[in-house]
């Protein structure tokens, strides 16, 4: 009887087959079944605070971030209401200038009008300068200090931008409807960016008040943020959508100048950053922003096209 020589590679194949078998066992579970998702997360303090020479823009929203799965909104799709656990009503909110410290008080407005367009921030509550003590000045630095009942502290700082005085057009100048029309305004060292709005007033139904009245339509440059210290050019080199023949011949040009914090806040909450979650740290101890804005507006006569 002759011996059949042992194949040297046979052992390797056996090992390979055993390994494959183990792999088969390992892969018995199906990982793509949906699974409940409840991450371990401690909410942070979220702040949206603004100060401005215009007292309507002086307020601070203080709340906490939500956990995944929390339902924090007034109107669920079925119309039911839910409690607003995230509002922080008992914080000490102070705005400190070089001269004075003003304490803001919590204010919750439940007027129905503010529900419109889903903009229910007043329902949630704001901290306001109810006594209107804080008269802010352009070029002055202000500090925000928030202390919550559980001991957390949030700080922020802003310097008030100056108003963007329009140089190219005085009140009731005629604005020609030509592509080369340029609007220029005065630069300001404390302004990081400007936002220009171009309104025409038309007679129509105001859905907020339920009455027929003159309504401002933003006809151009909505959501257009200019880079700092640059003039807006060619604002009407695109066809305007005239709302109708009951509009007035006058229009308003309103320019918002914003400080660096607010500019950073709005420019980094869009695009890549919004998807990736990359955020600038604009507050110490919390998320959000403490910024400032200023406004300048003028009225012009529109030359008919």
């Amino acid at each position: 009887m002759s011996l059949v020589p042992q194949q040297p590679n046979r052992n390797c194949i056996v090992v390979l087959l055993c390994l494959h078998f183990l792999v088969l066992l390992y892969t018995a579970c199906d990982l793509t079944k949906p699974e409940d998702y409840d991450p371990d997360y401690t909410p942070e303090i979220s702040v949206f605070g603004m100060v401005s020479p215009d007292p309507r823009f002086t307020f601070v929203v203080v709340e906490r971030t939500m956990r995944i799965g929390e339902r924090d909104y007034l109107f669920a799709p079925d119309g039911t209401e839910h409690p607003l656990d995230t509002i922080i009503k008992d914080a000490a909110v102070k705005v400190i200038s070089a001269q004075d410290t003003v304490r803001f008080s919590f204010h919750q407005d439940t007027s129905a009008m503010d529900y419109w367009f889903g903009s229910n921030y007043r329902q949630k509550g704001l901290y306001l300068d109810l006594e209107n003590k804080l008269g802010v000045e352009p070029g002055v630095t202000y500090h925000l200090l928030i202390e919550t009942a559980d001991g957390r502290v949030v700080r922020g700082t802003t310097r008030i931008p100056g108003p963007a005085r329009i140089l190219s057009h005085a009140d009731y100048d005629t604005l020609s409807y030509r592509p080369e029309t340029v609007i220029k305004w005065q630069d300001d060292p404390n302004t990081a960016a400007f936002q220009m709005h171009f309104y025409k007033t038309c007679w129509g139904h105001n859905w907020q008040t339920g009455r027929e009245e003159w309504i401002g339509y933003n006809l151009a440059s909505d959501y257009m943020y200019t880079e700092p210290h640059a003039g807006l050019e060619h604002i009407n080199d695109w066809t305007m959508d005239w709302p109708g023949n009951t509009c007035s011949d006058t229009a308003a040009i309103k320019i918002m100048s914003m400080d660096r914090n607010y500019y950073d806040f709005i420019r980094t909450n869009t695009g890549l950053a919004e998807i990736s979650g990359t955020q600038l740290e604009l507050l110490d101890g919390g998320v959000g922003v403490f910024g400032s804005v200023n406004f300048y507006s003028t009225r012009v006569i529109i030359e008919s096209p």
């Binding site: 307020f59 929203v61 903009s119 909450n269």
Partner: peptide, 17 residues
């Protein structure tokens, strides 16, 4: 988690929340 995104709109209102 989530956080609210607030802005000032062109008419000078806060929106978001």
């Amino acid at each position: 988690g989530w956080k609210q995104d607030y802005r000032l709109d062109e008419a000078g209102n806060i929106y978001g929340g």
